[in-house]
């Protein structure tokens, strides 16, 4: 890691346009190692688009993204994933026709990619890690179930599991609690805290659920119409006039 910067991930003046629409405009954000940061904003404010820019799924029009001290603005998504940034998706992307365990094995630590290496079956370490993570996420009993037959909440957990497989340092979770029942939300919260405390993993959480954010995050960014509206600790954000206006006003 670059010692000059205290940050794990930095976005500098990120701008993303879709035709005439500027979905994200000049957004600056930074996450320290081991931090849990929230990203909130009304529907359509650009949260998912910002995620897509940070994880390199979408090319950005202006600005740059620095991860672990390296400029990743031009890197490919798979390279960023292997550097230790994992993410989940607002619209769940699990492999429905594969079992829970097979889903976990799709995502894995990469130990080089010679053809002969790839032609081997899954490494025992990879399988062990998959089993451990499934138990940790309380999906152990569903290992051999098809992912398509899980409930919405279980699929969210599975996606988090897949994101954890390569042992990332930063996880971007896009609406990890939407469509999840309250009991499972507690599970998700609990697991995020455990990962953060015990393994020092950093999180960037996009959420609708303000309570969840207030509960989990040390710092919150607020987006509105693609622009950064406010940044600060959850308490001050909740009392911020501009934020209240954006959410409830007009």
């Amino acid at each position: 890691m670059n010692t000059a910067s205290p940050y794990l991930l930095e976005g500098h003046k990120i701008t993303k346009r879709f035709g005439g629409l500027t979905a994200v405009h000049q957004v600056d954000l930074a996450i320290r190692p081991g931090e849990i940061v929230g990203l909130i904003g009304p529907n359509g404010s650009g949260k998912t688009t910002l995620f897509n820019c940070l994880s390199r799924l979408l090319p950005i029009d202006e600005g740059k993204v620095i991860f672990k001290g390296k400029d990743i603005t031009r890197r490919k998504p798979f390279q960023v994933a292997r550097m230790g940034m994992s993410r989940t998706f607002q619209v769940i992307r699990v492999y429905r026709k594969m079992t829970v365990l097979e889903n976990m094995l799709i995502s894995r630590q990469w130990r080089g990619e010679g053809l002969l290496q790839m032609l081997r079956p899954s490494h025992p370490d990879t399988e062990r890690r998959a089993h451990e993570l499934l138990d940790f996420l309380m999906l152990g009993h569903l290992k051999h179930e098809l992912a398509g037959r899980l409930s919405g909440g279980q699929r969210r957990l599975l996606e988090i599991g897949m994101a954890l497989m390569p042992d990332p340092d930063l996880l971007l979770l896009d609406e990890a609690t939407s469509g999840v029942n309250p009991t499972l939300i507690e599970t998700i919260k609990d697991r995020i805290r455990a990962l953060n405390r015990e393994q020092g993993k950093a999180f960037l959480l996009v959420e609708h659920n303000i309570e969840f954010i207030a509960d989990m995050c040390e710092r919150v960014y607020v987006l509105n119409f693609g622009e950064l509206l406010a940044e600060g600790d959850p308490q001050s954000i909740m009392n911020n006039e501009a934020v209240i206006e954006a959410y409830f006003g007009a």
Binding site: S55, L57, P77, A81, R93, Y95, E113, M165
Partner: peptide, 13 residues
């Protein structure tokens, strides 16, 4: 089954 998903999970598609 999902090329974008595969790429985002570290597969050099």
């Amino acid at each position: 089954e999902d090329e974008v998903g595969a790429e985002m999970r570290g597969i050099d598609t």
